[in-house]
């Protein structure tokens, strides 16, 4: 497929992204650059200075809602992409409604319990939805531990081990690797469908 063919195909799809932090912002930008038609993104947080070590925001966006800042950044990169944003804390009661019409959902939360909530809610209520997970990317180095595996409709990106801690923070390179691996998985699923 040449890029025109790729763009023409991707234009017809809707991708959900749950969370607009390190994984969500970087993954959204990658799929917007390639031309996924519509992106539905949700987050309840605002941009903090401490986010700038890994998240796709700028210093002059500190204090803005992450969903608004991300929508603005995508608009600057590729104005053809439709972005539907929700300033909301996702939970088991609202997540299905928000993402049910997507072709697939990218899990881009930071907290393990939120990742668990997303997986269990979809497996219970919409078990066929493809879910692209980001799991394990704290720290630096160890590039070859970051991997990909598939378990039915769960697509798992990350080392599945490295958990964030005060002395093991999430940083742009490894978070970006996993976010882009998620974006790459999105393309693989959509372009092969």
């Amino acid at each position: 497929m040449n890029f025109e063919e790729i763009k023409n195909k991707l234009r017809n799809y809707t991708v959900g992204i749950a969370g607009a932090g390190g994984l969500g912002s970087n993954c959204a930008v990658a799929i917007a650059r390639v031309g996924v038609g519509k992106i539905i993104i949700s987050d309840f947080d605002i941009v903090y200075e401490s986010n700038l070590n890994r998240q796709y925001f700028f210093k002059d966006q500190i204090g803005l809602r992450k969903v608004d800042a991300l929508k603005a950044n995508i608009e600057r990169i590729n104005p053809e992409i439709e972005v539907l944003d929700h300033f909301i804390k996702l939970d088991e009661n609202n997540i299905i409604d928000i993402y049910k019409d997507c072709d697939l959902v990218v899990e881009a939360f930071d907290l393990a319990e939120m990742k668990k909530m997303l997986i269990e809610t979809f497996l219970s209520e919409l078990p066929k939805m493809p879910i692209v997970l980001g799991l394990g990317m704290a720290g630096f180095g160890k590039s070859n531990t970051i991997k990909f595996r598939k378990a039915e409709n769960l697509y798992i990106c990350g080392d599945e081990i490295s958990e964030i801690a005060d002395n093991n923070p999430p940083l742009a390179p490894r978070v970006g690797m996993v976010a882009n691996m998620q974006a790459n998985t999105v393309l693989e699923i959509l372009l092969n469908s």
């Binding site: 390190g22 939360f109 269990e120 599945e160």
Partner: peptide, 29 residues
């Protein structure tokens, strides 16, 4: 392919030929 919730870990049995997925969720993102 079927989700097993925590409350059912001791009552659900695994037999020959079964396909089991265990995901360990770690924070970060």
């Amino acid at each position: 392919g079927k989700l097993i919730k925590k409350g059912a870990y001791s009552s659900v049995n695994i037999y020959d030929g079964d396909d089991v997925t265990v995901l360990h969720l770690v924070s970060g993102g």
